[in-house]
């Protein structure tokens, strides 16, 4: 399966403020999204998952490595980015903030096509996009303003705006985090339907492992700028290898296992520990006392989608 979207050895380093060390937000990541595939990228806040999502749509220029779309490296000229974004669209977390309160639904959805000069039969394009996003009948919604709609409907408008350009890939950053429980499932259903009916590929960024179980084919677990475990959802979530993935799964309310509480907060990308970057918090290392954990750096995971699971850990190979 040829990846429609791929990153190779991606690095994003934010420059330091006076005196501080630069933040290595994304610190060597390989990841592929295949045609019609849904990949979930999960991790705690500060792990670099949102920076990675922004780099994927060209909003952040990587300081190292490449983003490839259909095998072609992404160019960073204004024209190249504009062309690229017709095919790869970003859906943001908070629909209330992503929509202009003074713009009605029609104009919000038409903004993309207008920017790309697709004004031929614009009305039809907008209505089709609204209908695909589940706002039916579209005529009823086109004239509304964001404040006249519920959170779930607003998120559907944001998704319709992305669909209006007929993209092949959607990058969604926490698409349901700000929505109510009963609406959450409806939006996730929509993403699955879009994959089935349009063959859309998606990378969904979330802190929620349940979301990965609900909609994703493959999952990548990110910790401090690196992917520490990746593979099929079944393999990673049911038979986790990496101690970090295991800890994340154990603290879910109905995991059925005693929770492994990691001490401390997610660490700081301005001071990435040497050796395995998880070693200061790792419960497995505390038990095994292996010298490689803090002495030997781990290679970056290849992100090979044919492997059922890969884990970056000295102790569980």
């Amino acid at each position: 399966m040829k990846p429609v979207l791929e990153v190779r050895d991606l690095m994003v380093t934010y420059p330091a403020r006076r005196g501080a060390a630069p933040a290595r937000a994304v610190d060597g990541v390989n990841l592929q999204v295949g045609q019609g595939e849904i990949v979930a990228l999960v991790g705690e806040s500060g792990c670099g998952k949102s920076t990675l999502a922004r780099a994927l749509v060209g909003l952040v220029k990587p300081t190292g490595g490449q983003v490839l779309s259909d095998g072609v490296p992404l160019g960073y000229s204004a024209a190249a980015l504009k062309a690229y974004r017709r095919h790869t669209q970003l859906v943001l977390q908070d629909p209330g903030g992503a929509l202009n309160p003074r713009q009605n639904v029609f104009d919000a959805v038409a903004e993309g096509p207008r920017l790309h000069g697709l004004t031929d039969r614009l009305g039809e394009r907008v209505h089709t996009a609204l209908a695909k996003a589940g706002l039916r009948p579209p005529e009823q919604f086109a004239g509304r303003f964001p404040h006249e709609m519920s959170g779930g409907q607003q998120q559907r408008v944001v998704i319709a705006g992305a669909l209006a350009l007929e993209p092949s890939v959607i990058v969604a950053d926490e698409p349901v985090a700000s929505l109510d429980a009963s609406v959450r499932g409806e939006i996730l259903k929509l993403i699955l339907e879009l994959r089935d009916s349009l063959g859309l590929s998606a990378l969904v960024v979330s802190h929620d492992l349940g979301l990965a179980w609900n909609i994703a084919d493959r999952v990548a677990v990110m910790y401090l700028g690196r992917i520490v475990e990746t593979g099929t959802v079944e393999e990673v979530l049911l038979r986790p290898k990496h101690p970090y993935t295991r800890a994340l799964l154990s603290v879910l309310p109905d995991s059925g296992e005693p929770p492994v509480l990691l001490t401390g907060e997610p660490p700081d990308p301005t001071s990435v520990p040497g050796g395995c970057r998880f070693h200061p918090r790792c419960p497995l290392r505390a038990a095994e006392q292996d010298s490689r954990c803090d002495g030997q750096d781990l290679p970056v995971l290849t992100g090979d989608p044919s492997a059922s699971s890969l884990a970056a850990c000295h102790l569980v190979q």
Binding site: V183, G185, W213, L237, L238, D254
Partner: peptide, 15 residues
């Protein structure tokens, strides 16, 4: 969803 529950795999439930 409960992770591991086959009924919710690739089947998000909403209202």
């Amino acid at each position: 969803p409960t992770i591991g529950d086959p009924a919710s795999r690739l089947a998000p439930a909403g209202l």
